[in-house]
Nucleic acid binder design. Structure first.
Length: 509
RNA sequence: GCCCUCCUAGCUCAAUUGGCAGAGCAGCUGACUCUUAAUCAGCGGGUUGUAGGUUCGAGUCCUACGGGGGGCACCA
């Protein structure tokens, strides 16, 4: 490893002499900070009440340019993103999280000492503006400042005014800069919170209560994934970060909470990609005395609600990658197609035709030896059917062998009551009629434990969960939705990193 | 973990075959009371991610390392 060296001027070295240009820009701003203080003004500001959102101000009516009529009095607060000075006049662009508006500051209009302050404004400073709303000679809606309030000094220069911050790494690392420079990024993350709010509202309207399961668990269950390991000192206990929400929510069903959901973070110790972040947000919802059909209705309501929260467009174009987008129509109801039917249509094989499955798999170049026919059947689905599913489409009734933890269809034990929602090859939701037979559950767990590989040695038998089931869990429908991927889809961001405020990155330097 | 690729001023980007590291924005000084990426004049700003190597000479070629991006693998 290289030792940190003084010439690595990018990392701040407190106490070391400022050496390079980066420091010069900062130094200039520090000097201005001193000048602001010399004016008797606190450069770090104070409470600033009753300001209006810029978007709200933009919605007001204001007199046209040159009118004798005084416009409405307004008060805004925000960041200076642009400054054009012209002699004894400044034009600023001031941005808050709702939008941006022009501010006019004239020396003769504000007076000498505010003018002195305005001379010290830098791009990136936070200011409060009192003024009247009107239009300039060129017709632009403008706040004509009457009073300036300094709210906070920016000691670092913001990115360039025209191109902004484009470097994807810096945008993720310094999300704060990304948010205040790139309005589309702000819109994306506010869109994400609207989607979450819509989910909570709809679930609440349907009688679901939000609960919080444990994030640190002695046994990380509910999915097959490698967990993160952590340690509790006082108990001297190895703990795992949860990989799913499922098993604790089901315990609550046993406890009598009939409709529960959790919108929570789960952690999986896996690779990072365009579609994977090690921590991500899941919705899981469980409805006592329901089944997977009830969950399909709920899924449709949730996603339609999310669309309405974003822009209300059911017919939308979704971005698959930087240079590929496709139209998708979310107008409900969405088709429900059985797994077997889709396999017949696209792969031309049925589950019972094992010879056909094997020859078809061989045809595609899949490894056939040593695999059970049902595994190949699943692989054929992934290869031949999933790419064809433009969606949104519910794929229902999976081969039971592929979903050991799902309740079988009454009178058809070879069929599992499960659906997955697909949109253009992306799996948006996964739901079951939950297995509530503790004896069957236990034996399936044991079988699963036997089959696992050496390096997956994290999985353990969750005896308490089995005990809970033995107290009788109601028959129930359960649903899982990957929130991050839904956000990618509805907010048109092809990379999961762009819908997670602080995605995992290697530490800087 | 593997393969490909990128890293140049605070930001956005140039730099011919290996031949003096440049521009715009931002910054500083000055002019300007209705600008729109304001304009005009002038000035400063760099260990080209890091460490080695090849070479008379490396931003450019080679090796290793760091970080990013894309893909593969992993991923009920």
């Amino acid at each position: 490893m290289n030792e940190p060296r003084p010439e690595s001027s990018h990392s701040e070295q407190p106490g070391e002499p400022a050496a390079a240009s980066a420091f010069d820009l900062e130094k200039v701003r520090e000097e201005k900070l001193g000048k602001i203080q010399a004016l008797g003004i606190d450069p770090w500001g104070t409470r600033f009440d009753d300001h209006q959102a810029v978007a709200q101000v933009r919605g007001l009516t204001a007199p046209p340019s040159g009118s004798a009529e005084a416009g409405p009095a307004v008060r805004i607060a925000g960041r200076i993103t642009l400054r054009r000075t012209q002699g004894k006049v400044h034009f600023l662009q001031v941005r808050d999280w709702t939008g941006q508006i022009q501010v006019f500051i004239g020396k003769n209009q504000v007076g000498d000492s505010p003018w002195e302050l305005a001379q010290l404004f830098d791009l990136g400073d936070l200011v409060g503006i009192d003024g009247t709303l009107g239009h300039t000679k060129t017709g632009e809606l403008t706040v004509f400042a009457t009073k300036l309030t300094f709210l906070s000094k920016s000691l670092l220069p913001p990115p360039e005014k025209w191109h902004g911050l484009t470097d994807v790494e810096t945008r993720s690392r310094q999300r704060y800069v990304d948010l205040f420079t790139n309005p589309e990024s702000m819109a994306t993350f506010l869109g994400r919170t609207r989607i979450l709010a819509a989910f909570r509202r709809i679930l609440g309207e349907r009688g679901f209560v939000e609960v919080e399961g444990p994030t640190m668990q002695a046994i990380a269950g509910g999915a097959a994934a490698r967990p993160f390991i952590t340690h509790h000192n006082a108990l001297d206990l190895e703990l795992y970060l949860r990989i799913a929400l499922e098993l604790h929510l089901k315990r609550l069903l046993v406890g009598g909470m009939e409709r529960v959901f959790e919108l929570g973070r789960v952690f999986r110790n896996e690779g990072i990609s365009r579609k994977h972040n090690p921590e991500f947000t899941m919705l899981e919802a469980y409805q006592a005395y329901g089944d997977y059909h009830a969950m399909m209705d709920l899924t449709e309501a949730l996603i339609c609600g999310a669309i309405n929260a974003v822009d209300g467009e059911y017919k939308r174009t979704i971005t698959l990658s930087a240079d590929a987008s496709v139209p998708v129509d979310f107008t409900p109801p969405w088709p429900r197609r059985s797994y077997a039917e889709l396999m017949l249509e696209y792969a031309r094989v049925s589950r019972s035709d094992e010879a056909g499955i094997r020859s078809k798999a061989a045809e595609l170049g899949l490894t056939v030896e040593g695999k059970e026919a049902v595994v190949l059947f699943g692989e054929l689905f992934e290869e031949l059917v999933e790419p064809k599913l433009e969606g949104p489409v519910f794929v229902i009734d999976y081969p039971a062998e592929l979903c050991p933890l799902t309740k079988r269809k009454a009178g058809a034990p070879e069929i599992a009551e499960r659906f997955e929602l697909f949109v253009h090859g992306m799996e948006l939701a996964n739901a079951y009629t939950e297995l509530n037979d503790p004896l069957l559950q236990e034996s399936l767990f044991r079988k699963q434990l036997q089959g696992q590989r050496e390096d997956d040695s994290m999985a353990k038998m969750d005896d308490d969960f089995i005990r809970a089931l033995k107290h009788a869990m109601p028959p129930a429908g359960g649903l899982g939705v990957g929130i991050d991927r839904l956000c990618m889809l509805l907010l048109n961001r092809p990379n999961i990193r762009d819908v997670i405020l602080f995605p995992l990155l290697r530490p800087e330097v």
